[in-house]
Amino acid sequence: MKRIHFFFAASLMSLLSCNEPTEESGTGVQIIPDCRRLSPFVTSVGFNAQRSAFSTSDRKIKGLTLVELSATAGVENRVYQHPSWKQAGSMGPIVITEDGSVYAAPIPVVNVLENDPLKQNIIYKVDPTSGEMKPFIELPSAEKPTAENPFGILGLAYDCESGILYATSVSGSTRNKEAGRIFSIQTKNEPKVIDIIEHTDAMGVDICYFNEQKTLFFGKTRTSDIFSIAVKDDGSFKGKPVSRFSLEGVGPRGDDKARKIRFDKTGSMIVHGVEFYYNLIAPTEKQETLYQFIYNLTEDKWENKNKGPLLQN
């Protein structure tokens, strides 16, 4: 059995939108339509877009890869990597936009040999036509990174309506000081930070309309809590973060942190929970658990639908 580099690897990120419905009446949650589009270069390298996906979880290939799932049983998947896709070392979160641009961020896995601790707060962009990956924006850390904490950006989300990118980062945080930040970032025209939530270490992040207010949800990394904050049309944050619920005591480990948050077509929040203590442990088995939370509009609370992990058939 091989040690799996699972932790932050964004599982395969499909290239095509699922055309999910935008509103679920009566749930209090309205999802923002998925706008992912095929990157033109995918077909130019001879990959079938219907069966292709971006990945940062290949155990033997560091960085970003494009995987074409085999249509035939027993035949290995095809994998493509542009020469520029390994410049950042191991990578983690990925988002794809309406023009096929891909945004991704580095995350060290097992060690920092190819992930310079001073370069973990850079978002990279893959050009949809040429496929070349270049630094898109370096996010400002509140504190200088230290040897205590090898991490920077941990989560990405993209608002298809506004073209605003959201990033969580724990860069500069230490045992004694929570110095992480959540950024909203302009992607149209010149890249620019629009707004920052200070002193907040977070990982998984996603955006939706919640009680008719555009709202960013994020999972904290020092506790198992899920928070939300209202977002204005211009991408700036409104008010203070509000604690919504916690993964504490839930699931096989009981101390999971939300690595990834996504809303499904029913308005449920799907949370990918992992162990996270700001170190580089890499367990053999994939220690990630999916949880499904549903908003109870009447009682104004999020309920764990399965009283534990989401049971998948």
């Binding site: 040690r3 060690n111 040999l113 904490n149 945080s173 580089l280």
Partner: peptide, 19 residues
Amino acid sequence: GFGYSDAIGCPYFSTAAVV
């Protein structure tokens, strides 16, 4: 080329893979 370069160290806030 298969293997690991493991650091050892503290369990919380560290670059250790084995704690």
